[in-house]
Each structure stands twice: as C-alpha cells, then as structure tokens.
Simulated assay, not measured.
Amino acid sequence: MSTGRKVPLRKCVVTGEMLPKKSMIRIVRSKEGEVSVDPTGKKNGRGAYISKTEEAVETARKTNKLERQLEVKIPEEVYEELLRLIRRESIL
C-alpha cells in the first residue's frame, strides 16, 4: 500500500519524459536574465528541468532546447556545470 504521498514529477525539456523531480536538475533564469544551475530546486525565477544524464545535457547543448525553454542564451559554463554535477553523482 502506498503512503499516499505523491512524488513530484517534472518534464525533462530534452527527452519529454515525466520523471521524479529528484532525478532531474533544474536550470533557472532570474529576472535579470542570468542563467544558473539550481541543485536545490528552490531558486526564484523561470525554471527548466533536465534529466541527470550526460546525453540529455549534450542534446540540450546541440539543439538549444534549454535556450528556447528559458528564452535566453545559455552560457557554456552552465552546460559544463551540469556535466560536472552529473559526473559527481554517478561516482557516489
């Protein structure tokens, strides 16, 4: 029997899959137009979720899906930080 607690699902902007929020990373655009990775999922601003896979990040980079979703140019450092986070988690 389930405990009745719903697992929050979010849609990956790259794959279109609905996945638990915990298995994704949030990228945020602030009101000032700055883009940052939001590992806590609590920063203010427009957010987009991406699956925690290197493939998803590379696809997002190639297809500009994050740029379209957040309506802003995504700096290369954001993709690098995403990959770093994913690699660090896969080691643990």
Rank of each mutant, 00 (worst) to 15 (best):
L66W: 02
I74N: 12
L82H: 06
Y79N: 09
V37D: 07
K73G: 08
Y79W: 11
Y49N: 06
R87G: 03
T63S: 06
V28R: 09
R29E: 02
L82E: 08
I86P: 01
K73N: 13
V28I: 10
R26W: 04
I50H: 13
E89P: 06
V78F: 02
C12Q: 10
G47E: 06
G33R: 09
Y49P: 05
E55Q: 05
R29Q: 14
K52E: 06
N44K: 10
A56S: 13
E67S: 15
T15C: 15
K31T: 07
V14E: 05
V13I: 15
T63G: 03
V14F: 02
E89C: 05
R5C: 06
E32N: 10
L19R: 15
A48Y: 03
T59Y: 11
I50K: 14
V57K: 04
L85V: 11
P75H: 02
K52D: 01
E80T: 10
C12S: 15
E17T: 15
Q69N: 14
S2W: 04
T63I: 05
R26S: 08
M1D: 12
V7P: 00
R26G: 07
R5Y: 10
G4Q: 12
E89Y: 03
E17A: 14
E71S: 05
T40N: 11
N64D: 07
P20M: 07
G41R: 10
K73P: 09
E67G: 13
E55C: 01
S90G: 09
L70I: 04
E71R: 13
S90C: 06
L83I: 14
A56E: 02
R46T: 08
T15R: 11
V78E: 04
R26K: 03
R84K: 15
T53L: 09
E80Y: 01
V78L: 08
P8Q: 04
E34K: 07
N64A: 03
C12A: 08
Q69H: 11
K11R: 12
N44F: 00
E55P: 00
G45Y: 00
E80S: 03
E32H: 04
T59H: 12
P75F: 04
R87P: 01
K21Y: 03
T40R: 15
V7L: 07
S30K: 10
E89R: 08
A48D: 01
V13M: 13
P39V: 12
E67L: 11
S51F: 05
A60S: 12
R87M: 02
C12K: 08
K62F: 00
K62S: 13
E80F: 02
E89M: 04
I74Q: 14
M24G: 00
G47Y: 06
A56T: 01
K42S: 09
E17N: 13
K65W: 02
K52V: 02
Q69I: 07
P39W: 07
R87C: 01
I74T: 08
Y49Q: 05
K11D: 03
E81G: 01
S36I: 11
K62L: 12
L66M: 06
E89V: 04
M24C: 02
L9A: 10
S2K: 11
R88M: 00
R61K: 14
L85R: 14
E34Y: 00
S30F: 05
T63D: 06
T59W: 07
V78H: 03
V28A: 00
